[in-house]
């Protein structure tokens, strides 16, 4: 149980980072932490006590495998997260070129 609570704390750290930090890069890091927490949670629910990697071989007796589906799902989700991260970093570099700052309180030309 405690491991799920640690996972929740990790998620909360990410969410706090996104909501409270003023630096663009820190916000991006926060999103990264949130995504990792979500991925970790997905992996955790697929874990079985004393389970081993779900690889099927001829001479092995399969009695205690972890669930393979969350692992496939998380692989996809990591790729999506990577794409998002790259895009965000690229955009923030461009933002820095235009505004000469990473502070979101100073990046406020959109109003209304």
């Amino acid at each position: 149980m405690s491991i799920y609570i640690l996972c929740l704390i990790l998620f909360s750290v990410g969410l706090y980072c996104v909501l409270r930090k003023r630096n663009l890069i820190k916000i991006i890091i926060g999103i990264g932490i949130m995504e990792y927490a979500a991925n970790l949670f997905f992996i955790l629910i697929g874990y079985r006590q004393e389970g081993r990697a779900p690889i099927y071989a001829h001479d092995q007796v399969i009695n205690n495998m972890v669930d393979p589906l969350p692992q496939a799902v998380v692989l996809t989700s990591i790729v999506l997260g990577l794409a998002l991260m790259l895009l965000l970093v690229a955009i923030s570099i461009r933002i820095y070129e235009k505004y000469r700052t990473f502070d979101i309180t100073k990046i406020n030309r959109l109003k209304g």
Binding site: L24, I91, S92, K98
Partner: peptide, 8 residues
């Protein structure tokens, strides 16, 4: 500049 800000 505004487009980048909105996109972020």
């Amino acid at each position: 500049a505004e487009a980048l800000e909105a996109s972020f």
